[in-house]
Design a protein around this nucleic acid. Structure first.
Lengths: 349, 349
DNA sequence: CCTTTTAATGTTACCGGTAACAATATTGTA
DNA sequence: TACAATATTGTTACCGGTAACATTAAAAGG
């Protein structure tokens, strides 16, 4: 029944007014007599009229559509950013297209497609600089970055305070008496990985610890890379007493690898991650981690974007969201008696 | 620079042809002389012209936009469905709006908003019948369900073969010698939970086992509910030798709860889940589970939807995707002396 | 070589809204 | 009461494409 092909002119005819008057009623214009308004509203209800959003976009030149581009949509962090942005967008009457851009080519293509075709009126890009993801950035187009701050002027951005996050993680380990602390990093071309390293180093430096490069191993955010990193670490012969993994997935990989080698967490090895995945407390042992409020980051990004769309002179912002330490069971005070080298040659599982 | 406000008429003027000829070139119409085409294409490049998608939608009455409504966008299953649908959609030149509809009110509102405003030309609804989510369903509007088959005629749907999934899970436990098998269900108003129960019962029945109602405990898909379910089970005094949890999260909750009670998995208790979360192999022990190809489900849904949009007479389909057993370490042969951990005989591996 | 057919291009209207301005009705003031 | 000021409503054009039809140019046939 409501196969609503009713247009504004049908309503006008039905109410005995001009289509423009109907438009005024829809848009709550002041210049409509109360009597007329009632009449038109009655017709709208009777005919079950709904304004056509496309026609509206066309006339106004605004689409009330945003897009969010992420490397993928399934990683918990990306999915949460999208959800945060989506919920916020809807509060303001916008919808959100989400699109996965796993490669620079695809990202570039999507940027062109979405912007040049004027399909969306604003864009959120997650992890914008990975792989030099694009060569061409539109000018004067509302754009917000998540995950790293814009090098270009005029682009707002929202990130976790990654430096602080790294700092807090290491500080927690230091406070437990650990001195021999290793780190598994994310992909180092990403700003957030670099910032987390800076925080790591800053905390160690403040504690008067000079760490050697061998204690920093590069991962790729995956649990597998956490496993590999820990195995590489043990092959060097000197196993640290604590490890900061730059995300939870890698931390979990480290824990599994340690378990396989018969190294017990946290008695012999403290592990701290970053993210606070929903299941973080269900691993064995429950994972100590640095929590980031991902929903908030996505939501703030959408806010900034919409402000920029609706008021182009809106000043650009670079927000950082504060991390929070969540202590569970994968970290423990440094145990001096275990200072003897750990026997690794046999699988003790 | 490419602040592309160039229209089809600008290109026409520049090339010395009518705007309609430009339109023909854009749309690869046959009726354009090669010489003219070249000329127009040159103008398009020179002026950096890009067709306005909104105007196109307006003229054609098609938007090349789909929407996918899910209870949330962060759960791995939902996020993967969205990604599957999104990637498929883009292959066909469509974009995908994803929106979270946690409550029936919001879902109803979104349905109205998206459909009546003709913003999207098709809709995917995930878990459509939860909470009697809506009262009003549009007629003749391209719609595809994921998670349960449509009761209404003319609506295509894609689901996991949930009955088979439940059956396979139980069959695996039976094949290991377990006879005392409990189940933790999802939210029972959801079709998939009901179907999984049917598979569970069918497998038991075929094995000649009559299970008592106490062995089935209702959860809500969350890890916490898995914990609670297992504690409830132990309070009854008779702990089963194996548990089928209708999703991985609950299985993980069960495993943690068992560990807390000193019941070892899989020696004293076998646990099998369903989904195959990306981190399933990183729990302790790595989780045996029934895998569903979620990306494929999302992708198929988008395929069906687009087919239905582009050819309204397209027949409706009800696809079921096959589950797959993934054996890891959380299930083991039934051990008749529960006291001692099972000794893996060499000939068995 | 002229007519017929077909290919190529142009003209006009339309999709369903909104904006700008014009026209009319109402109110207030001299 | 007349006239200006203001409130209300209507008319027309426009956003940027596409569709249908008209027109013109080129190719084919007698």
């Amino acid at each position: 029944m409501p196969q609503s092909r009713v247009t504004i002119r049908d309503v006008a005819k039905h109410a005995g007014v001009s289509h423009q008057t109907v438009s005024r009623v829809i848009n709550n214009s002041q210049h409509v007599a109360p009597k007329t308004r009632k009449k038109v509203q009655a017709s709208i209800v009777e005919l079950d009229y709904r304004p056509n959003a496309i026609a509206r976009s066309m006339a106004l030149g605004r689409t009330c559509l945003l897009a969010c581009l992420a490397p993928n949509l399934t990683d918990f962090t990306f999915a949460s950013l999208v959800e945060g942005a989506e919920v916020e967008a809807r509060k303001h009457g916008y919808f959100l297209i989400s699109s996965s851009a796993p490669t620079p080519d695809i990202l570039q293509h999507l940027l062109n497609e979405l912007i040049d075709s004027r399909r969306v009126s604003g864009l959120i890009v997650i992890n914008p600089y990975v792989d030099e993801r694009y060569s061409y950035l539109p000018e004067n187009f509302p754009l917000v970055f998540i995950g790293s701050h814009a090098r270009e002027p005029g682009i707002s951005s929202v990130t976790l305070d990654d430096e602080l996050a790294g700092y807090l993680a290491v500080q927690h380990l230091l406070s437990l008496g650990h001195r021999d602390i290793a780190m598994v990093t994310g992909v180092m071309i990403e700003d957030c990985a670099q910032k987390r390293c800076i925080g790591f180093e800053k905390a160690l430096k403040e504690a008067g610890i000079t760490h050697t490069a061998s204690q920093v191993i590069q991962g790729d955010w995956s649990a597998t890379s956490g496993r590999d990193a820990f195995m590489a670490l043990t092959e060097t012969g000197k196993v640290p007493s604590a490890i900061f993994a730059q995300n939870d997935r890698m931390a979990i990989g480290v824990m599994q690898s340690a378990r396989d080698m018969g190294i017990s967490v946290p008695e012999q090895l403290s592990v701290i991650g970053l993210d606070d995945l929903p299941l973080a407390s269900y691993f064995a042992p429950p994972l100590t981690t640095i929590r980031q409020d991902i929903i908030k980051i996505g939501s703030k990004a959408a806010q900034l974007l919409i402000a920029n769309i609706e008021e182009p002179s809106h000043p650009t912002h670079r927000l950082t969201i504060n991390p929070e330490l969540i202590v569970r069971k994968s970290t423990a005070p440094f145990n001096h008696q275990k200072e003897e080298p750990i026997e690794l040659s046999h699988n003790q599982i």
